[in-house]
Design a protein around this nucleic acid. Structure first.
Lengths: 222, 222
DNA sequence: AGTCAGATTGTGGTTTACCGTAAGGTGTTG
DNA sequence: CAACACCTTACGGTAAACCACAATCTGACT
């Protein structure tokens, strides 16, 4: 079993539960971080000291407060950690249950497991840690495995996400052409953008653009 | 101090932390509920048995799963509980930090305290329980008190919320007139609706309607 | 190079949104 | 009841979104 584990979670309440599980799994050294930056720092330090963490259990959302942080989400933390220590195992542990966001974690950040905080957390997290240790693939709870099958989320690519994102921050379709050209995003003609928005509306069964953005927000796509 | 407390939270992980705090406060009887319906049932039963709960600590969001529930949010649970047992004290305990939603809890459901799940949860919840026991007003953490001062949320009334809500589910301004008349919402002329949407856009500094709805969703207004 | 399918862009017309202004209603006050 | 402010509704013009169709470009294959 892992011997040195870091838990990154901004809710102090969760430490107790995590500690209990890791004790049951006979993990010797457990450290905690309440901020992303703090977590990265600890991982870097341990790495330099020649006693690296073997597992990071991280939440996704970290509340902003008076402390200024460079990293402000689990995604950013994980990307930074992977860059620094590619060998560390990473399990994400969050209440987020929207397939799209979770899918991205596996596909782009190559995490080693995902546990939804819920009614069976204690059991699920324990299993996930064991699976991560044994390098088992598809390290998610059964209900999530089902969610990840959902096509809806797979057929929405980065272009779509950025398009909807820009719509949601008030860029009109008129101006989208200019913005896309500045950002080097293609296709970027007014006509193409209209067409793509229209496709997305059909795809998500949205009556209009307002509806589309609301749906995308609900699904966690933006 | 309270002697009988119910905790309604669907994340099993949180039970440990809550139990620790309540033990420190010498609360004798602590019960847990993972579903809203379950929580209401326990409260009803205790009431009928002549040994009612004195305090309910409830989360706001409860995940849906295979179990069908009549009540599906903390708000619904609290409304139902208040109806049944007006004397029970209620503290809401959630990660929700958006002023608008919290404000509604105090103004319409008359809760006795609010604690944001965060880095100081253990301290904050303990204080909140003591304050609720002593009937102290404004039972929130200092940072939240500041948030609740924010005017933004006070000046948005029910009409605005419904308007934005309908926009977000794909009702065009064209059709809003018909919908509002059916629902008995007034004013309902196309002109009035246009005007109100326009006001809201100015208020929230939104470039267009899409942007407005996105902002409203981010603020937790809808 | 030539062909072709599919993607991208362009164009014109229709609908909806947007915005200013004016007309109509309602309630208050002297 | 006249005067007034304020709210609601109506109207008209402009801009943006929407939609169908046509033109152009692109890359793969022969």
């Amino acid at each position: 079993m892992f011997t040195k584990v870091l838990i990154a979670d901004d809710i102090d309440f969760n430490d107790l539960g995590a500690a209990q599980i890791l004790n049951e799994l006979d993990v010797l050294e457990i450290q905690y971080a309440k901020y992303c930056d703090e977590a990265l720092l600890k991982i870097k330090k341990a790495h330099l000291d020649g006693a690296p963490f073997q597992l990071l259990i991280s939440d996704l959302s970290f509340k902003a407060d008076h402390q200024l942080n460079k990293l402000n989400s689990g995604e950013e933390l994980i990307a930074a950690v992977k860059k620094q220590c590619p060998n560390i195992k990473i399990i994400v542990f969050s209440i987020e249950d929207r397939a799209h966001r979770i899918k991205l974690l596996f596909d782009e950040l190559h995490i080693d497991g995902y546990v939804i905080k819920g009614r069976n957390t204690i059991y699920d997290l324990k299993r996930a840690i064991q699976k991560a240790y044994n390098n088992e693939p598809e390290n998610v709870s059964p209900e999530l495995l089902y969610l990840l099958q959902d096509k809806t989320t797979r057929e929405i690519d980065n272009y779509d996400v950025r398009l909807i994102k820009y719509l949601s921050i008030g860029i009109s379709q008129e101006n989208m052409e200019t913005v896309f050209k500045q950002e080097g995003i293609s296709p970027n003609s007014k006509s193409s953008i209209e067409k793509q928005v229209s496709k997305l509306k059909i795809y998500f069964k949205a009556n209009n653009t307002v509806h589309l953005v609301a749906i995308a927000k609900d699904l966690g796509i933006i």
